Simulated scan of single mutants.
Amino acid sequence: MAIEQDNFQRYSRQIFMEEVGVEGQRKIMSTKVLVVGAGGLGSPIIQYLAAAGIGKLGIVDHDVVELHNLNRQVIHQEQDVGKPKVHSAARFVEAIHANLQYEVYSTRLEEELADSIFPLYDIIVDATDNFDTRYLINDSSVKWNKPLVYGSIQSFEGQLTVFNYQGSKNLRDLFPRSTDDSNLPTCDSLGVLGPLAGMIGNMMALQVLKLAIGLPVESNKLTLIDSLHWNFITVDY
């Protein structure tokens, strides 16, 4: 099936790639992705999935924009401080593509909500920084058999992987739940340079697009990035 002329022109630089083509773009445009978190990681993920023409974009976030978010959460602006992140995220998506389908959920992700919305999406993305939510996202992805693109950042370091894809392992296989993870470091305690969020978030968005197209995605491998010393390694798990 041909792609409309407007869409062909908009996405031509993707379509021209041998690995994508018209068929791959059609797959992107029929894929529904749920991004949990519209902060440091969620911002570039939302930005590039919307720009790539993803079929439907779901965004879950209960938080409001704060001034200290702006060094890395690039879809939000000064005028958004004090307002729900999903509102500025929605405005950003509309500015990129007025006809792009999206749904925002201005609430904390709980099990009941996960059970109601995870079945509606093809791919889940964990862009959160809360350990309780991470395990909920993981367990719900396993429950509903959804591939999960996972990433995290702090200071100069980041990591990403794809869980629960074609029988691959999940978060609990890699990081068994600690009895007390409340004291583990986060961006709030150690800080983070903004471009690192862009690096990891964009890599996560790329994995989402590869999943959507059906391109090879390695299983049971964790990519670790030390941007201070510019070390990139991948480890099996």
Rank of each mutant, 00 (worst) to 15 (best):
H97F: 14
L34H: 01
K210W: 07
I75P: 11
G191M: 07
Q47A: 11
C187G: 05
H87M: 15
H97A: 15
A89H: 01
N130Y: 10
Q207W: 09
F232P: 00
V162F: 08
L184W: 06
R72N: 02
L120R: 12
I75K: 00
P119K: 06
E78Q: 15
S140N: 06
P176M: 05
N164H: 08
H87A: 15
Q207T: 02
L171F: 10
E4I: 15
G37R: 06
R26F: 04
T186L: 05
E66Q: 14
Y135I: 03
S43T: 10
A52C: 11
G151Y: 01
K83R: 15
A212F: 08
V35R: 09
E23T: 12
D181T: 03
L41S: 09
K85A: 03
H68V: 08
N71H: 02
A127H: 02
Q166G: 14
L109W: 12
G55I: 03
A2N: 15
S152Q: 03
N164E: 11
Y48V: 02
S189T: 15
G39E: 12
W230S: 07
F163S: 01
M204D: 09
R72P: 04
V81W: 09
M1Q: 15
H229Y: 02
N71P: 02
E23K: 05
E94R: 15
E78T: 13
G82R: 04
A95P: 04
L160F: 14
I54E: 00
S30L: 01
S140W: 05
Y165K: 10
L67D: 07
L49V: 04
D129K: 00
G42N: 00
I15K: 06
N138R: 04
Q207K: 07
N99P: 05
Y237P: 07
I96C: 09
K56H: 11
S43Y: 02
S12T: 12
L193S: 05
Q77L: 14
D139N: 10
K221W: 05
L209Q: 00
A89V: 08
Q5E: 15
D63V: 11
N202H: 12
V208G: 12
D181H: 08
K56W: 10
L196P: 01
H229E: 07
E111F: 14
I123E: 10
